[in-house]
């Protein structure tokens, strides 16, 4: 009885000193809704780089849009949700948290893929996490990778601590994209991830599902106008010495393979790691058939295969995906596998 009373008094003494709830310190743009008929691809809120990426039909770009915006609970937005946006000059939104202390500025970027040739000569760097990402040849930010997800596990803040980065070991001696499979770290192992497979893809990385459903975090595809017929480029590949399964056990009978492919599909909804091979919106595929080691840059030229695909609609999107471990989505691969891709090109009819 005495003990029971003690427990009660302890619990009471603990609960009785719960303090007043803190004011919400968060300042997110949570949703940014635009009428789908104005879009060529779904709006992307790039939380890591604080950008609103818009993929607009030409008419919408010319006439402007009226977005509906939801921000963190209690936060205020300027300019307000429901104000119309005219394009032509830089646009940004500022969110102020309920606590008043925190402010976050989002730049609005209208993304138009003007050129489907990618030479990987221009690279940007994410602040504060210090991972690299390539710009398209026309300056558009259309490529991303698994790097933003790996940043969450707190790897060292330097470009070569991430699996996808620039290299000067490119085709014709210029820059190229280097994709390597790295060992996981202590934090990733806490959530069961033993390797960081390298990836590079056209699309967006959605950090919010990086832990609960990693395949859904990789949102593939950018709007495309026209009729792609071939996917060409250069690559070289060296698989790492020991292939391991998702539990980190070595599988001697396996050698790591790379994956390079382009998928054309009906938008505006992007595909992700769980349906990129199987979605019924897929229109055509161009898949690199030889996934084995190549010590020198090797050219590929793959025709798009339209057989068995859906009919192309008027909101086509294209995803290009390159990975240093073909089974990386299920965290199977060899540490040290290295893929370099350069001069990727989509040839239109």
């Amino acid at each position: 009885m005495k003990q029971f009373l003690l427990i009660i008094s302890l619990v009471c003494s603990l609960t009785s000193c719960i303090k007043k709830a803190p004011l919400n310190p968060e300042a997110d743009i949570e949703t940014f809704t635009v009428d789908k008929t104005f879009l060529t691809g779904d709006v992307v809120i790039d939380q890591a780089n604080r950008k609103i990426l818009l993929y607009l039909q030409p008419e919408a770009y010319k006439n402007g849009i009226v977005p509906k915006i939801v921000v963190s609970n209690g936060a205020t937005l300027s300019p307000a949700s429901g104000d119309s946006l005219k394009f032509g000059s830089p646009i940004s939104y500022t969110v102020t948290s309920q606590s008043g202390v925190n402010r976050k500025k989002y730049d609005v970027v209208v993304v138009m893929v003007g050129s489907w040739t990618f030479n990987f000569e221009w690279w940007g760097i994410n602040d504060p996490n210090q991972y690299e990402f390539p710009y398209g040849d026309d300056g558009a930010q259309v490529w991303t990778s698994g790097n933003p997800g790996i940043a969450i596990t707190g790897v060292d803040k330097r470009p070569d601590a991430y699996p996808m980065r620039s290299t000067t070991d490119g085709y014709l001696g210029t820059k190229a994209a280097e994709i390597v499979t790295l060992p996981g770290n202590d934090i990733s192992k806490m959530i069961g991830i033993k390797i960081f497979p390298g990836s590079l893809f056209l699309g967006n990385f959605n950090s919010s599902s990086a832990m609960t459903n990693p395949p859904a975090a990789t949102e593939f595809g950018q709007p495309i106008v026209g009729h792609p017929v071939r996917f060409t480029g250069y690559y070289k590949y060296a698989p790492g010495p020991l292939f391991q399964d998702s539990d980190g056990n070595t599988v001697n009978s396996m050698t790591d393979r790379c994956a390079v492919y382009a998928i054309l599909f009906n938008g505006p909804q992007r595909l992700n790691g769980s349906n990129i091979q199987t979605a019924n919106t897929i229109v055509a595929r161009a898949v690199l058939p030889d996934q084995s080691a190549k010590s020198d840059f090797t050219r590929f030229d793959i025709p798009f295969d339209y057989t068995g695909g859906s009919m192309p609609g008027n909101q086509l999107m294209l995803a290009i995906v390159a990975s240093s471990s073909a089974e990386g989505a299920s965290y199977r691969g060899a540490i040290g596998s290295r893929l370099v891709v350069d001069s990727l090109r989509i040839i239109m009819q």
């Binding site: 968060e26 890591a48 806490m190 950090s207 832990m211």
Partner: peptide, 18 residues
């Protein structure tokens, strides 16, 4: 959910983590 770096970092939903 966690926020990478602090309240202004990107949100990452957590179902379960030990």
């Amino acid at each position: 959910y966690i926020r990478n770096g602090g309240p202004l970092g990107e949100k990452v939903i957590v179902d379960y983590a030990e």
